[in-house]
């Protein structure tokens, strides 16, 4: 067999081999990104993502987009810049959400008996789709960072509003006013329940009155732009194919 000879015996076999590799690569990429992204997200924004009584108008809105735009930006840097696949952000977010939903059902509910409506994950899909669409239409990293990154931050709260709104309805309990989500927290006491641990609606941002969520979203969008740039270059670095010498002598 000559050095220029193919490893396959027909074009049909080449196509079949290529498609089989596609699925194996996709599965491995999906699960590896899922694992890395999930451990990153749960340890940088997890408490806000785990519990409905942490999902406030200030820090949840600020933190979740900032820490979650990371892996989408990095995966886009590989899938778009190398393969012209405009799905990096959506695949990353779908992977994360799959891991989270399985966990919330199997473990949060299945092992420690928290109802799903106190421990559902945040919805990141709208921002991810916009991030991919901006990259596909613009083909520019700078445009995606500025327009897509800003949209990612701004869309987070609206994207979660239909889910969280019923739990932000005010209720009076033992003479105190709180949200329905806070009331859930009272009934399902956790080690992270004490108010000196729970970082919810702290600070003076309340002086903005009803505008707390938009102001937080706008700040988050600004930081998302910067984080996108940073993680785009992380993604490029992680996509390198360099070898280093293994000659120990």
């Amino acid at each position: 067999m000559s050095a220029s000879q193919s490893a396959v015996r027909s074009r049909a076999e080449a196509v079949q081999v290529s498609r089989t590799f596609d699925w194996m690569i996709l599965f491995t990429l999906f699960t590896a990104v899922l694992g890395g992204y999930h451990i990153h997200y749960m340890l940088t924004g997890g408490d806000w993502d785990f519990w409905s009584d942490w999902k406030d108008r200030r820090l949840w809105v600020t933190v979740a987009p900032i820490v979650s735009i990371t892996f989408p930006a990095a995966v886009q840097a590989c899938l778009w810049w190398r393969y012209r696949l405009p799905v990096g952000a959506t695949i990353s977010v779908l992977a994360l959400l799959l891991g989270e939903w399985i966990n919330r059902y199997m473990n949060f509910w299945g092992w420690t008996y928290f109802p799903i409506n106190i421990c559902f994950p945040s919805n990141l899909v709208p921002g991810a789709i916009v991030l991919d669409v901006v990259l596909m239409l613009g083909g520019s990293m700078t445009l995606t960072a500025v327009v897509g990154g800003m949209a990612y931050g701004l869309l987070f709260y609206p994207g979660n509003w239909p889910i969280i709104a019923p739990l932000h309805v005010p209720v009076e309990y033992n003479g105190m006013m709180m949200t329905l989500a806070d009331l859930q927290g009272y009934h399902y006491v956790r080690t992270g329940t004490p108010e000196y641990i729970r970082m919810v609606e702290k600070g003076t941002l309340r002086t903005f009155g009803k505008d707390v969520a938009p102001v937080s979203a706008f700040f988050s969008a600004f930081v998302c732009i910067i984080i996108y740039f940073l993680w785009h270059f992380f993604g490029r670095w992680f996509a390198k194919t360099d070898f280093i010498s293994d000659d120990a002598s």
Partner: peptide, 16 residues
């Protein structure tokens, strides 16, 4: 990696 970094790591969160 999925089982280790995702499934059992977040599971640890709800246990604690």
């Amino acid at each position: 990696i999925y089982w280790g970094a995702s499934y059992f790591t977040e599971q640890d969160g709800t246990w604690h």
